[in-house]
Design a protein around this nucleic acid. Structure first.
Lengths: 342, 342
DNA sequence: CCGCACGATGTAAGCGCTTGCAGTACCCTG
DNA sequence: CAGGGTACTGCAAGCGCTTACATCGTGCGG
């Protein structure tokens, strides 16, 4: 493996100058820089990450905490993070959090403390009190996406507004009997997103003078299958069948579409359905949704984190809550309710 | 940050002994080891990754090359890798390969050469000739999953046999007009899996005395949407409608199921459909498939790689081609063809 | 009882960089 | 022309570990 000394020798300068020329820190004359770069290129020299980290305290490496690797939302955010970091020359170290208590402890107690990363991004993770504390004690720049905790700087989308937007779209179409597929309440202990979406839903109804009725609510687990089952429940109940379903995620909305089809209802003629997220399958299912641009969320988190790292003096930027963009995407799964019904 | 010296002082030994006690290399008496471990724990000491790497040349970090972060198969393999590595105390550095030529070069020329990883796992990546060469030149243990190249040690499933198995299942049910959804031929330049699956399909047909007919083949792109469109093509063609469709991936098979439904065919009564992979949605769609246990593939790759790392003396284990397990999972999407046709 | 082997520990030399400090040359100001 | 910058470069001291080698006992065979 070629080392900095060889580059220095070939370029006829000291290793200090090579370091400065290649890292861009400190002053190096233009011709010298050129010689060093040529020497480095011709030798195929690449700085050793560990030596550089040890000497400088910087690792050019960001740790990313992910709860589920194989769920679309998370892997999409992760893809955004990966591409943004790669562009800036950073490596990304992946920590996949499971439900296993001991494994989680390990991550916070050991893995993250090896001084291997310059900062941490936590994607929508339900962190325990203690885990949050561990994170803070790392004394590293941290940024969370999607609100695991109010005690960490967090990038959030205004979930109440998102849900309002989707609901108002249905209301504007003329729907009055709108059902909602949300989350199991137990979820809510440290994870408030589903609750906030439900609030937005209910606010929009209230504004339209429609009381929330419990039989138009059904919890599920944010999967297609969960949405499918929930929709079957909602559509199978005695009493007025809803003319529209607002699901708190696209995956559940897709499940609802499949359930409706299976029960013989046409979407959107007999039943309008909308979701939230911007799932890649949305287009295929012609799903009306509120896109929250998960890929861009990852990219923004990177930008915010690196800003913090580059200028640690600046106070941790207090991210305004709910600043992330979102947008209603109207496709073919929503329409005016058919005339024949009330 | 607490360093090894403080631990040494507290335990009343030299730093060398602390290092030996904590790493398990070299001899340390039981009582001494105990004192060191206690001291380390009470101080909350964790070795600095960069210092340790610099001194020892080991990083306890594995690089993983992934082509698509947001496709189920890849993220599932990745999840398997992540959990296996975490259990062994390894970190995982993620390199997400895009189609961008320059970005890819960067990964091979720079990122992987920072001496940040002890080994590399490449998940089903279509690597260029040059890229493969770069990988080999890294002089690091490398293992690939799913056959990017014959020049790298690779863990593979016998794709021909997998496809035969699925096809033979359909034949055994009595199907004779079986269509196949595979990949676009251009795909095949460096990536042979779809081709091998097609071969298995055709072999099984041939063994049953059935000639392959081109109008029963349709290429797609391995997505649900692609499978949907391909199935519509197949089912819309003049001539005998197939009684069964064998798709080269579960995602395409699911697309085919949706297409069949939309055209008014019942699955499996009017049309049997099977896939390959073991996709998480398979159960929901009651999809008959050949599971190839992607999570386990990731875990195996880790085991093989670490074995190589732990004992570099041993010749790189030549993995028998096609050794990975697979299994036919019969669910509700396949059945005997209905009597009325033939 | 001597010498040797071996286990336990310490000493200290790096691992390959970064960076504070110092030195040099040169330029600008007054 | 002196004084004070400024830009560039080199020197050398680490960064926090690991490990080859040296040292010291201890137990044991001869």
């Amino acid at each position: 493996m070629v080392s900095i000394d060889e580059v220095a020798r070939l370029a006829g300068v000291s290793t200090a100058t090579v370091s400065r020329a290649l890292s861009g820190r400190g002053n190096v004359s233009l011709p010298t820089r050129g010689r060093v770069e040529n020497a480095a290129k011709s030798l195929g020299y690449v700085v050793s990450a560990s030596a550089s980290s040890l000497a400088s305290g910087r690792t050019r490496n960001i740790g990313v905490l992910v709860p589920y690797l194989d769920r679309w939302f998370f892997s999409t955010v992760l893809a955004g993070i990966a591409s943004a970091l790669m562009r800036r020359g950073y490596d990304i170290t992946l920590y996949s959090l499971t439900d296993d208590r001991a494994e989680r402890r390990d991550i916070f107690d050991t893995f993250l403390r090896r001084q291997r990363v310059d900062g941490v991004i936590a994607i929508s993770i339900e962190l325990g009190e203690e885990e949050t504390e561990h994170l803070r004690e790392l004394d590293l720049p941290v940024i969370a996406i999607g609100g695991p905790s109010s005690r960490l700087p967090t990038l959030t989308v205004d979930d109440v507004a998102v849900a309002r937007l989707a609901t108002e779209h249905l209301l504007a179409l003329g729907h009055r009997e709108i059902a909602h597929i949300g989350a199991n309440p137990q979820f809510d202990i440290d994870f408030h997103i589903p609750t906030r979406r439900r609030q937005g839903f209910e606010q929009a109804l209230a504004d339209a003078g429609i009381p929330a009725s419990p039989h138009l609510y059904e919890p599920a687990d944010f999967t297609i299958e969960g949405g499918f089952r929930a929709a079957k429940q909602l559509l199978g109940r005695p009493g007025n069948r809803p003319t529209a379903v607002f699901a708190a995620s696209d995956e559940m909305a897709i499940g609802a579409i499949l359930a409706a089809r299976e029960l013989g209802y046409r979407v959107p003629e007999d039943l309008s359905i909308s979701g939230i997220d911007g799932h890649e399958l949305g287009e295929f299912f012609r799903l009306t949704t509120v896109d929250q641009f998960p890929r861009a969320q990852g990219e923004r988190a990177v930008a915010a984190l690196l800003e913090d790292i580059d200028d640690p003096a600046a106070p941790t930027p207090q991210h305004e809550p709910g600043a992330l963009p979102f947008e209603l995407i109207v496709r073919g799964s929503t329409a005016r309710p058919s005339e024949s019904r009330g």
